[in-house]
Write a protein that binds this DNA or RNA. Structure first.
Length: 261
DNA sequence: AAAGTACTCAACCGCGGAGTG
DNA sequence: TCACTCCGCGGTTGAGTACTT
């Protein structure tokens, strides 16, 4: 097995993506879709391997990404799903529209694990820690001052995403996320939401005024509904569909894209 | 103000599974 | 069945930034 063959080639760039590279990749996928990831770098004129392009697209450039800090509802959902699914980040992400597995994984490792320890809960087993472990955890941990800091997008190909982040920051119930999604779905049918959206479109997302505690009270039943047989039948696991399908025309996307800029 | 420490998050790495010839 | 390629996932790393001393 070993290293991916595309990474063995010389002169491939690594590290952070430049805005120019982002633009090339974004424009290429707008026009032609993904197709074969291994051919994307060459066709897009990038000195990157296909894996790198895929990761950049999925974690940053995808227009359906939700930006900004995690809401209390999302936080509760992640904790509940983690209890059921463990470190299956892609499956957890499938239940959080607009969030990536990488984003959730980072959030879990940097913030949620500590929060659970502070509450006396073992983040691995979700069971109460021993008194010694709890005391140790409380002694070593501090409240993260970043918990309420909004992550501002640097390069946001869709300004609506930034608007949603602003709404989140202000705590206003502007619910920009929904029209954002609906426009993509109804105006162009461009995205293949597949399992990502099925069964999740009725979430109380975007309703920042909703009562967090009451939502949490219903979380057990909600999780059962969401996860359903997945938690019990690992053989039936679903995978996220690619965001782009070859059947969509560039014009569809461009028209849709223009609505948002 | 400077140095040290802690934290975040984008990106990479390595592995396993699926598909194909 | 085997060899190979490609894709996707989870774990890990390291640069940049924020915070503390």
């Amino acid at each position: 097995m070993g290293r991916h063959s595309c990474c063995l080639k010389q002169k491939l760039r690594k590290g952070l993506w430049s805005p120019d590279e982002d633009e090339k990749l974004f424009n290429h996928i707008i026009r032609f879709g993904v197709g074969c990831w291994s051919s994307v770098p060459k066709l897009a004129g990038l000195q990157r391997c296909g894996k790198s392009c895929r990761l950049r697209w999925l974690n940053y450039l995808r227009p359906d990404l939700k930006r900004g800090s995690f809401t209390q509802e999302e936080e509760d959902l992640i904790i509940g799903l983690h209890e059921l699914l463990g470190n299956r980040w892609s499956q957890i992400a499938a239940h959080l529209p607009g969030r990536t597995d990488n984003e959730i994984k980072n959030f879990w490792n940097s913030s949620l694990k500590k929060k659970l320890k502070q509450r006396g809960i073992d983040p691995t087993t979700h069971k109460p820690l021993t008194h010694v472990e709890t005391a140790q955890s409380n002694h070593n941990s501090k409240d993260s001052i970043h918990d309420n800091i909004l992550i501002e997008p640097f390069f946001d190909p869709f300004c609506a995403v930034g608007l949603q982040a602003a709404a989140d920051q202000a705590g206003a119930n502007l619910n920009l996320q929904e029209p954002f999604h609906n426009s993509f779905i109804t105006a162009s049918s461009f995205f293949q939401y597949g399992s990502l959206m099925n069964g999740t479109e009725n979430y109380p997302y975007g309703d920042s005024s909703s009562n967090s505690s009451s939502w949490t009270c219903n979380m057990g039943a909600e999780l059962q509904r969401l996860v359903g047989n997945e938690a019990l039948n690992w053989n039936s696991e679903r995978k996220m569909e690619p965001s782009f399908g070859a059947q969509h025309s560039p014009e569809d996307f461009t028209a849709c894209f223009d609505d948002f800029i």
